[in-house]
Amino acid sequence: MMSMEMVERYIFAVMQKLPQSQRKDIAIELRGLIEDMLEDRSGKNHYTESDIEEVLLELGRPKELADKYRNTKKYLIGPELFDSYLYILKVILAVVGISIGVGFAIQVVINPVNILDHFVDMIVSAVTALPMAFGWTTFGFAMGELMGNVKKEDLQWEKEEWKPTNLPPIPVEHSRVKRGEAVTSIIFYAFFIVLFSFSSDYLGVWVFHDGFNGVVPFLNEQNYGTYLVFIILILGIGILNECLKLAFGKWSYKLVLYTTVSNTLSMAIILFMVTATDFWNPTFMSDLVEVNVLTAGSEGYDTVNWIWSRVTFWTIVILILSLVWNGIDGFLKARKNK
C-alpha cells in the first residue's frame, strides 16, 4: 500500500499545476493510465514498488506532464506580443534615457561648478530609472500575456489587409527624413522646455567678470509667467513636428502641409508675444550699462541700442523667412518623391 501512496502523490503533483476545472477528469484518466501501465508490465495486481517507480519515471516529471496537458506557453511574453513589446520598450527606454541626459545638461548649465556631482546624479538616475522602466514595461506586458486578453490585433495599428501593390515606393535618398536630425531637434526642444520652465534667468547676455556673474535678461521678467505657457507651447509644437517627420519617414505633400500649418501657428503665437510691448526687457540697455558691459554714450552703446530697438522687426523678418524657406524646402523634397 505504501507504493500506491507514491502514485497518489504523483497525481496530486500533476493536478497542482492544472486549472481547477480539468483536475478531476484528468486525475481519473491518469490513475487509469498508471494502472494500465502497471498491469501491462507485471500482470494483475502483482506490481512491486520498483514497477511503480519505472512507470512514473516513464511518465516524466509531474510539472512537464502538466505542461503538456495545459499546452500553454512557457514564456513571459509570447511571440504574439513580442514585437510590440520590443517597440514600446525601445521608446520608453529612449525617453527615460534622453530625459536623464537633458536633466544633466540643464544642471550643468545652471550650476557648472558642481559638474561632478551632477554627473554622479546622472549615473545614479540612469542606474535606477532605466532598470525600473525596463521592469515595469516587461511587467505590464507579462500581465497582458498572463491574462491572455491582449491580442496581437489590439496592438496592431494597420488593420487592413496587406497587399504587395500597396508597398510604398522607396524614397529618393535626398527626400528621406534624416532620423538623426529629427532626434537631435527633439532633444534640443526638450532641453529648452526644461530650461525655460526652470527660469528665464539664463536667456540673455551672460556677463563674465572674473568668472560668471549674472545675466542681463532679454525678456521682461514681470510678464514671464504668462509668456512661459506660450513658449512651452511653441517648443511642444516643434517636438510634435519632428515626431511627425519621423513617423512619415520621408517628405510628402501631406507632411509639408502639416509642418507648415503648425509652423504658422507657432509663428502667430510668437508674433503676438513679440509685438506686445512688454515682451522684451524694458531696462535691457540700462542693465547692460549697470553691469559694465557697455558705457553710456560710447559707440558700442549706440550700436547695441540700434540693434535692440529693431529686435522686434528683425525677429519677425527672420521668422517669416525661415517659415517660407521650410515650406519651400519641404515642398521640393516632397516633389522628388512623386
Binding site: 493510465l33 501501465m37 516513464e58 511518465l59 516524466g60 512537464e64 506532464l65 503538456k68 496537458y69 499546452n71
Partner: peptide
C-alpha cells in the same frame, strides 16, 4: 509516450 498521447487526445 502516454504522457504525450493523453494530452493530445484531450486537445
Amino acid at each position: 509516450e502516454p504522457g504525450t498521447l493523453y494530452p493530445l487526445l484531450r486537445r
